[in-house]
Design a protein around this nucleic acid. Structure first.
Lengths: 265, 265
DNA sequence: TGTGCGCCTTGACGCAGATCAAGAGTGCAT
DNA sequence: ATGCACTCTTGATCTGCGTCAAGGCGCACA
């Protein structure tokens, strides 16, 4: 039940060039915490494990906090752990040698990371805002999976869903215009918030929250910072959205945004 | 052992606008054929099933031939089947309402299709050249999976690998130049041929085979036909490749292509 | 209450790749 | 062998987005 495996951590450098050296180190959490009370359980793969077996799951997990701008998965490193995001937002990305970056996804609460068959990670991961993650050793989880085939099934479901999302993103990156990309992004975020978030209300007068920077959005959508910024101001001028501040966007015309996102117009 | 489930088929229209109405219909194969002799077994998920259990697998499968330009999965249709490519090449794609197309992948021998949790397909599939596929009913396969957890594990492996490939493709679509995209494509094709094909030889004086059209390549790489063509002639002029004919490419300088593909230069 | 540092926005300009247009193979059917 | 249909190549021109540059805003820290 108690958290074990409190092995030491190496501090990761923020990916943004040698800058922003915030609090700096990952902090293993020793506080008493169980999978039973985990805020992410409802939406994560862990919901495949029944209550009575949760102790075994908890005994393989370590809870960790990562500060904004700090990475905890480095592409190419040997993959020794799986991760489960329990709060906050993580950006997943790949880099080219000259620094060009593609963010392949933003992982929020309940997201499972590290699903590679390979022995090394195929992407890097970095906290967007203060993030709490749950870490499993690969070898331990593999044993656990043999005992809980339901969890393996859940993992296949998760992987399949991510594959669908990845294909949608390929369509966006390969064939959509900048406006369509932004509209798609905003609508996807809105959908995510209503489905996974605390909110389950129908009408969303709630703003869409964008914890990541314009640079992150640009690298996710295959654009530049400037184009993201210009496109947002244009969507605002067209009364499709309002941008009260950098991190919030109100969807004034969801219908219009949706048809933009799907390539109509 | 014999093939069952020879239910009737609806002819699919080629996705290229109302043109090219070749032989037209899918042909269920009634010929005696077993999973044991399947040419794709070595590379497909089916290798998770032991010889003694192959009869059960075969009894849920139907072998089908699809002619070039004909589709057998339509995005949005209810997903009743899984497919396994046993020969030929299939293109997987998504469309925008105005006809813009993104090919999300080319599936060759051993590839497994239809891994969606959803009740409907999230992409369309169409034969590039004459294709032989093996069809499973979803419901039957699900039952079978419960009896063969090894196959479920293989599926998770496959899905994970595809996820890695999808992320690599996002990097390509979002951040690489036209030359880098073509170089990446050619190197990936070459690697695929040596790994999955009959060839296992070290040096590849063998040409890279491109069964798909320039239009398909363009829609896969997020470019236009013209840019694909121009870029290939430029790579040829730079002595990186030779293009003896439309469907073959010789890699004259694999090293150079590789560094181009990875963004060096 | 400054002032320094990220981050964001906005403008001017440039370019990679798209679009438009015109042939040049190539293969099949008659 | 002729014509048609299709794909591919090549050239000329256009343009959406990238690049370069300047300035504003908010926030942390002195």
């Amino acid at each position: 039940m108690a958290i074990t495996d409190t092995s030491s951590f190496v501090a990761e450098r923020p990916s943004s060039v040698p800058a922003r050296r915030r609090p700096l180190v990952l902090e293993p959490l020793h506080a008493a915490q169980t999978c039973a009370t985990c805020s992410a359980r409802a939406t994560s793969v862990c919901n495949a494990i029944e209550d009575k077996d949760l102790d075994r799951l908890a005994s393989t997990a370590v809870s960790i906090i990562v500060q904004p701008g700090h990475g905890f998965i480095e592409e190419g490193d040997t993959a020794e752990h799986f991760f489960n995001v329990t709060s906050g937002t993580v950006k997943l990305f790949k880099l080219l040698p000259d620094g060009r970056r593609q963010i392949t996804g933003f992982a929020g609460i309940g997201h499972f990371l590290g699903l590679a068959v390979s022995t090394s990670y195929s992407f890097s991961a970095e906290a967007v805002d203060p993030v709490r993650i749950c870490r499993f050793s690969r070898s331990k989880l593999r044993v656990l999976l043999d005992d809980f085939p339901a969890m393996e099934k859940r993992l296949l479901e998760v992987a399949s869903n991510e594959l669908v999302a990845a294909q949608e993103q390929m369509l966006l990156l390969g064939r959509k215009t900048a406006r369509e990309r932004l509209a798609s992004f905003l609508m996807a975020r809105a959908g995510m918030q209503t489905h996974c978030g605390a909110e389950t209300k129908p009408a969303l007068r709630e703003p869409v929250s964008l914890p990541m920077t314009r640079g992150d959005i640009a690298d996710y959508l295959g654009l530049t910072i400037e184009t993201v910024s210009r496109t947002l101001t244009r969507l605002k001028a067209e009364r499709l959205i309002d941008v009260p501040n950098t991190t919030d966007v109100m969807l004034l015309d969801p219908r219009g945004l949706q048809s933009l996102a799907t390539g109509l117009d």
